[in-house]
Write a protein that binds this DNA or RNA. Structure first.
Length: 612
RNA sequence: CGGGGCGUGGCGCAGCUUGGUAGCGCGGGUGCUUUGGGAGCACUAGGUCGCAGGUUCGAAUCCUGUCGCCCCGACCA
């Protein structure tokens, strides 16, 4: 391709709309244009990148025996109502764009395809003899994101590879899950990305085991916690650790465990309480009042106890609340702090905010207009493990010192609700500490189990002749996000440095001065030769000054640059490697050999990392 | 949705406090010179100052409303 015909529009200044390097560079180098919030045009250069990534994804998935397909994006509401996700995905903070056709039928624009694929699988897969099957597609997904940001990182329309596998039993599912894990590692490696696999929460999709693939980058939206020996890595949403030991409260329980009242005027936070009376935060129990809202309209007050020095992990809490209530009340829509104003609107007497203890009576909820008049009481294990502690006295300006479970009432149900923090000791080895880094989630694999197949009655006949729901897995890769993540990981002050395997072009031949006939002729000749050797090559034939063309070549990030300039008359050209800046001069007639020797291994991708 | 910010030629910005009819840099076009790291000179085209009301003799500037976009939080490939 000739640069003069490429519709190349590069920008000298950073566009005001972009914040992070990859977003700025993709805009400046003419790879993308914003059409609306979270909606981008993939310009010809980026489309080539996306196609190269897609090819790698196809090759690796096909090698595992997966089948490519293409499913509809416009999906009937009825399908989603059957799986029970229509309400959750359209009400509340639902992410599904939905519409009505002129017959008044409701339709959704696919944010994911579990429903469609499971319905099809239920139709087509009837016998264990047909299993396992793994289907995938690469296409645009639509999600009404609460806040689109960072260009392609979180768009409302984006390209995703999604795959769904179907199995006769769980062992087979685990086998395919493992194969996908390996395929994903090869895909990211071939794309030139440094990616790490981390344990993850399953989120709205549900299911049991799940693992995310994170491209490490400062601009990443997720916090990864990993042990220094690399044997453990998890998303903070999911991460577990050993909490620091509490500082024991001297003297044991007082007043038979019901605690001794202490005047704490205006001391509504753990910090204020501790600094006023010399307590350590780990000697206290803090109590959070929250309100869970469900699909069926149920509003369930929550009373959560945590050790004072710990932070609540909202993902763990949401999972715990769903597990206890969703069977009766449907999808958990959200959990929000229970505020004084909300309590007032319910017609309740004021709650002792800032002085709540774990034994706050359900009586404070009696007469509530719409809430369930009983707290769901849960506690983190660090709180229930305390023999004695300081907690709120359930009336204004009073705390209880040296209270104990049993003395103030029974301990709530105990589970892991705390956020693991950088610096915490690891569970697998307490000499290892968790270290934090940031990551961009580019892939996520799930063992879904039978959630969707049971809901949509997608069954098969097993070896014993009985009908049972299919076992399912699902596996996603954010293709357009991956392209931007690659830029985030591979750029410098002058522009993008694409890994060769996903670069839009592999080589750019720059004619320094098109007015010089020698240069022109030699440039054209090299361009033709590289093309016929199967190289993806650009020819910068524009009548710009050399400096402009060099700047553009660097900004675009083409891995190899061949400069046809002063040496052209004597048949000498210069070869420059974008990533390192390394320059070497060659006789033009040996260029192709030298270049191909470098290009061929780079093209196949498999990185230094997985090396010999 | 809560909090913060911004809308002025294609892009990046100034002007707004203290109203007087719009400017700078980059980019575009033409010509000459230049030609290995975003060239120089000259000429030139291009803007209902997001939109709608209001105040005023007069509004980019002040007031009200509205729309759009960006950043921080909740959502996720």
């Amino acid at each position: 391709m000739r640069v003069s015909r490429l519709m190349l529009v590069t920008l000298r200044d950073d566009p005001a709309e972009a914040e992070i390097p990859s977003h700025k560079l993709l805009l400046r180098a003419g790879y993308i244009r914003r059409v609306g919030s979270g909606i981008y045009a993939y310009l010809p250069l980026l489309w080539r990148v996306l196609q190269k990534i897609s090819t790698i994804v196809r090759e690796e998935l096909n090698a595992t025996g997966a089948l490519e397909t293409l499913l509809p994006q416009l999906q009937p509401a009825e399908l989603w109502q059957r799986s029970g996700r229509w309400a959750g995905y359209t009400d509340g903070e639902g992410i599904m764009f939905h519409l009505e056709d002129r017959q008044g039928r409701e339709l959704g624009l696919g944010p994911t395809h579990e429903e469609v694929i499971t319905a099809l699988a239920g139709d087509l897969l009837r016998s264990y003899r047909q299993l396992p099957v793994n289907l995938y597609q690469i296409q645009t997904k639509f999600r009404d994101e609460i806040r689109p940001r960072f260009g392609l990182m979180r768009g409302r329309e984006f390209i995703m590879k999604d795959a769904y596998s179907f199995h006769a039993d769980e062992a087979c599912l685990k086998q395919t899950y493992g194969a996908m894990d390996q395929a994903y590692r090869r895909i990211f490696s071939r794309c030139g990305l440094r990616a790490v696999a981390v344990e993850a929460d399953s989120g709205a999709i549900g299911g049991s085991a799940s693992q995310e693939f994170m491209v490490t980058a400062d601009a990443g939206e997720d916090l990864i916690l990993a042990s220094s020996d690399r044997r453990y890595a998890a998303n903070q949403e999911r991460a577990v650790s050993r909490p620091a030991d509490p500082v024991p409260l001297a003297g044991g329980p007082r007043a038979g465990g019901s605690g001794e009242p202490l005047a704490t005027p205006g001391q509504t936070s753990i910090e204020q309480l501790c600094s006023a009376h010399g307590f350590d935060p780990s000697q206290t129990v803090k109590v959070l009042a929250l309100l869970a809202r469900f699909e069926d309209g149920c509003l369930q007050p929550l009373l959560i106890s945590l050790r004072g020095d710990q932070q609540l992990n909202e993902v763990k809490l949401a999972n715990a609340v769903s597990a206890r209530c969703s069977a009766e009340h449907g999808t958990l829509l959200d959990i929000a702090p229970l505020t004084a104003e909300a309590a007032n609107r319910e017609g309740l007497a004021p709650l002792p905010f800032g002085f709540m203890g774990p034994h706050l009576s359900d009586a404070v909820l009696s007469g509530a207009a719409s809430w369930t008049p009983r707290f769901l009481r849960l506690a983190d294990g660090t709180a229930t493990a305390l023999e004695t502690f300081v907690c709120g006295g359930n009336c204004g300006d009073t705390h209880l010192v040296a209270a104990a479970w049993g003395g103030i009432g029974p301990a709530p149900e105990s589970l892991d609700l705390r956020s693991a923090q950088p610096g915490d000791r690891c569970q697998h080895d307490s000499t290892q500490l968790l270290e934090a880094s940031r990551g961009i989630e580019v892939g996520h694999i799930f063992q879904l189990g039978r959630k969707y197949s049971a809901a949509l009655e997608a069954t098969f006949t097993n070896e014993a002749g009985q009908e049972e729901p299919l076992w399912m897995g699902c596996y996603g890769i954010g293709v357009s996000r991956l392209a931007q993540a690659a830029v985030e990981q591979h750029h410098d002050a002058n522009g993008i440095c694409w890994p060769t395997a996903i670069a839009p072009y592999e080589v750019i031949v720059v004619i320094a001065n098109v007015a010089e006939e020698h240069q022109n002729q030699l440039g054209e000749q090299l361009y033709a030769e590289l093309q016929s050797a199967g190289v993806d090559v650009l020819l910068d034939d524009r009548s710009e000054r050399a400096g402009v063309k060099f700047k553009d070549a660097d900004l675009l990030g083409i891995p190899w640059r061949v400069v046809v300039g002063r040496g052209a008359a004597s048949g000498v050209v210069e070869l420059v490697e974008r990533a390192t800046g390394e320059k070497r001069e060659f006789p033009a007639n040996t260029l192709q050999e030298t270049l191909l020797a470098r290009l061929l291994p780079e093209r196949s991708g498999l990185l230094e990392a997985s090396g010999p």
